[in-house]
């Protein structure tokens, strides 16, 4: 893995999300896993079993932090206690980079605990950039923003989602956690071609890729992380790795979680694409 400055030149390959139902298997079988992604908020506590389990995991494995409540696009300022605890955890895990979502979810101190989409406006670009920069400066590690799945679009939007993402990451000078399943889900819900999105993102800024499954309903698709990855999403992944070069990749599986082996095997399918000889031409061009 060549890595880039947005993932601290990491050589991480394929990882999976660390989930409680798998602890027993991990501790007893000690499976070979390149890295685990942890949900930061689950460990932003003072003490107790979750941190003890995390320390045990870190004795043997590398972990990367992924957050769900930084809400880079919220208009109200982040809670200082949140930032303090997050930095404390960053120092504990020594995560090479940290990701959270390009979304909002709290207003006036009240939290929805959802990843709500932003209107793609210039005002939202400015607000989001300001916060990403502030968080990145405070944490002193590279930050990557993840594109979210969305079910609603805004009348106020002035650009496409990928244009919005590009504006934010270029101005904030941060990385991207490219979730190809989220691109697929949003493309189906908003009726655009997902490949246009993958082809438009600034490939040299992609620090990490997420893959996952979703649930299809009659009139929309929900990002449920409770199924295997479907072929059209693997095709987006193939194109993303073609553009970005081999990139740290993480399978998310959060509901109806099957056995560790099943989840890991699904994640390792990514190697079909990562191990191909790729010139990663766009990366080379961007670097020069």
């Amino acid at each position: 893995m060549p890595g880039n400055r947005f993932n601290a030149y990491a050589d991480h390959t394929v990882g999976i999300g660390l989930r409680i139902p798998h602890y027993q298997h991990i501790f007893s079988r000690k499976p070979v896993v390149d890295w685990f992604e942890i949900i930061s908020e689950n460990f932003m506590i003072d003490a107790g079993r979750p941190l003890a389990m995390l320390d045990q995991i870190m004795d043997r494995y590398r972990v990367v932090q992924h957050g769900v409540s930084m809400y880079f696009g919220s208009v109200t300022a982040p809670d200082p206690e949140h930032l303090r605890r997050l930095k404390q955890l960053v120092q504990r895990t020594k995560t090479p980079w940290l990701s959270d979502h390009l979304c909002w979810g709290s207003v006036d101190g009240t939290y929805t605990h959802d990843l709500l989409p932003l209107p793609y406006t210039w005002e939202a670009v400015e607000r989001t950039v300001e916060r990403v920069r502030m968080v990145q400066d405070f944490l002193e590690i590279p930050v990557a923003v993840e594109n979210v799945s969305s079910y609603a679009a805004f009348t106020a939007s002035q650009m496409t989602e990928w244009e919005f993402l590009t504006e934010v990451v270029e101005r904030a000078d941060c990385g991207i956690l490219l979730d190809v399943n989220n691109i697929y889900v949003s493309a189906m819900n908003h009726e655009f071609n997902p490949m246009d999105y993958v082809n438009a993102v600034p490939a040299h800024r992609v620090a990490q890729i997420h893959i996952a499954g979703h649930s299809r309903y009659e009139k929309y698709i929900l990002d449920t992380h409770d199924h295997p990855v479907i072929d059209p999403v693997w095709q987006l992944y193939a194109r993303a790795t073609e553009r970005c070069g081999p990139t740290p990749t993480l399978l998310e599986w959060d509901d109806h979680i099957p056995s560790f082996d099943e989840v890991h095997a699904e994640a390792l399918k990514a190697n079909r694409y990562l191990r191909r000889k790729q010139p990663a031409q766009e990366l080379v061009e961007a670097a020069s």
Binding site: G73, S74, V75, W104, S106, V107, D108, T110, T112, D114, L116, L118, P119, T121, E123, A124, R127, F154, A156
Partner: peptide, 13 residues
């Protein structure tokens, strides 16, 4: 942005 977020949060909750 602020009005959208206040309006949407109220609706969602």
């Amino acid at each position: 942005l602020e009005s959208i977020q206040r309006e949407m949060a109220a609706a969602v909750m």
